[in-house]
Nucleic acid binder design. Structure first.
Lengths: 247, 247
DNA sequence: GCGGCCTTTTGATCCATGTCAAGACTCGTG
DNA sequence: CACGAGTCTTGACATGGATCAAAAGGCCGC
């Protein structure tokens, strides 16, 4: 199916570059593209865009133009209630693909805000659909990405529906830890990019509860926290806390 | 793109039949298929399968073979914790497509159990992917279905994360009501297919709470309940209760 | 039609988390 | 360097929903 075996080292380097520089390894690396396909993908994803801390990547209600792959940085997505409350739907980091929920209605249903200076790759959705039509493995991979998002959401539902505050926060920290590890950063030491309030919103808890539970974890020696800095001392203990509920 | 204009009345009848009899109007109706495509879809979806009340459609851990479109009946999907607790992830009725979360890992991650005698259409996933490759509008539609599932999940997350018991139950009843209406049934009078415990699991509440809130709604004249029978007297009041949080 | 099991209702009490409030810390800016 | 806004911590108290318990009602097989 693929002409992968005919790739020269230069092609491979180019491919690797196209993927890693644009954080679409998520999207194209496992797809097994040939040279021509590569050129197409190259064209598609070579539209970088910086988003400064506090700026919106997109807002609820706007038309879906592109999906966005995070090249670097940190973004939260959130739905806004009419009464001003906001519910954080997810935190996204390097390599994550944003905007999937907009495909359904053709317009975004949540806001995406950068929590630190961020660079994304702009992936025009129409172009992606067209390309995926021509490159079956790309389509197949895209299906899996969508499905993975559904699985992730089910995990959050489980967390919100059946875990207590301590369990939720432990699960959250472990999840962050693991995602940093996957990206080559320390799994035990990192800076939170979000406020206690945002964590609380995501976990269905109030900011005071987040603060209290973090303090308790620290007292018990499981972690060290100071403001946004966080160090995990005893990941196993956290895992035991989460106990029977893995997402 | 499509040869739709060349369809004879007979073809159209056949198409309508293929769709309505198998509850894949969800999947194929909006796709604008031509005759040959129709034949292919026909082949794909003409595998019906009955599932008796209490039986599993699939179990967590089993390999993904097919997606399932519900032709009639009622199915719950649930993830099982190691400790035996279960978390209901969704209730599904006629026309719904099940199994999307399995695409990610190639195996099912939750159980699907029939809450009443049910008939589903078996849609081999490999075949669906192949067909979608040949019929762009089918692929496009499938993307939207996946996205819609993500949107639905976000709605549940919002409900679990930021609504109180009364609001959750009101939202749940309105959602059921609306889905029955869409399918041509009464929006105000229907039988619940699930136990209080299952509702509670879905909404992140205990069965006693469900029972109590239902009783309270009844006292206030919003609904009438007797066992599984439910009648909505004042949908507007329920909507006001849910207030600012629409999913 | 009876007996047993599952589901539902309702009451009493408890507890985890929310709410309210005060003060401390942090960081960016004038 | 001081100020002020935003963020975080901690305490006291309130409360929604969980838990425990008992009894009633419905359903199914015999």
């Amino acid at each position: 199916m693929s002409a992968q075996s005919s790739l020269t080292p230069i092609d491979i380097a180019k491919l690797r570059n196209a993927c890693s520089t644009c954080s679409v390894r998520e999207l194209c690396l496992p797809a097994g593209l040939d040279l021509q396909e590569l050129a197409q993908v190259d064209k598609m994803v070579n539209r970088r865009r910086p988003v400064r801390r506090g700026d919106y990547l997109y807002r609820a209600g706007t038309e879906l133009q592109s999906l966005y792959a995070i090249r670097s940085g940190f973004i939260k997505s959130a739905v806004l209630h009419e009464d001003g409350r906001e519910q954080v739907a997810g935190f996204h980091m390097t390599g994550d693909l944003l905007g999937l929920d907009a495909i359904s209605a053709g317009r975004h249903l949540c806001d995406a805000v950068a929590l630190e200076d961020t660079e994304v790759c702009d992936i025009p959705f129409a172009l992606l659909e067209r390309l995926a039509r021509e490159i079956p493995s790309l389509q197949s991979h895209f299906n899996r990405i969508m499905s993975r998002e559904i699985v992730r959401d089910h995990g959050v539902m489980l967390l919100l529906g059946s875990m207590r505050a301590e369990e939720r926060l432990a699960a959250f920290l472990l999840n962050l830890s693991q995602r940093f590890a996957t990206r080559g950063y320390s799994s035990t030491e990192f800076n939170l990019r979000m406020t206690r309030e945002e964590i609380g919103s995501y976990l269905g808890l109030k900011l005071e509860t987040i603060s209290r539970v973090l303090s308790r974890f620290q007292q018990e020696g499981l972690i060290q926290v100071r403001n946004r800095y966080l160090k995990i001392n005893d990941a196993d203990a956290l895992r035991r806390l989460v106990g029977h509920c893995e997402s």
